[in-house]
Amino acid sequence: MAVGVKVVNRPGSLGQQAYLPAIAEGLGVTFRHFVKNFFGNVTGQRKKTDIATIEYPEEKKAYPERNRGLHRLMLRDDGQVRCVACMMCPTVCPAHCITIVPEEAPDGRIEKRPMIFEIDELRCVVCGLCVEACPCDAIRMDTLDHAKPTYRRGDAILDKEELMSRGVRSTAVQGGVGAFWREQVAGQPQTPASGEVVPAGAPHGPTPLRDHGHK
């Protein structure tokens, strides 16, 4: 049997067959977007443009509320670190990025405290297990920030003072003092001695950095 030939007609008119009008149309769309985005950008009306990218780091996107970011160490009412060096977080840490050296606290009602508290943010896998393990609401990852790039690896190891500099006072119960979780009614703000308003249920909710004037 001879092979049959089926003739398929080219679509449409000569104009369509030549493709040139379609090219011109396509370039027109491109040019329209170029004009809109370019002039929108240079005149400062970026929101009206179609640009999806952001100009990091000048411009930043807000992370979602439950983002796990850079660690911080929370503080007691008297400004001391809440951490009691119980070693729960280095025990649970899958990346072994937390180093704590405990010492005897000379004063105060809680006799143990960290002498050294270091987190290697390069090793950290941002799993958040340390926050879950902490019995004292001492370590949090709710800074809505991430580890900064550094020139040297050692600079990515954050020490106690740096971690505390991001911390705020927490009202969670510690050493028998403080609000008990059953008394913390959701949504009802509590005012600790410092006068700083911390939302109720603070141990479980994020407290964004920028609300406290930190950068």
Partner: peptide, 11 residues
Amino acid sequence: HPIDCPICDKA
């Protein structure tokens, strides 16, 4: 009993 296991060496 004070449940101070976080700072108790026996924990």
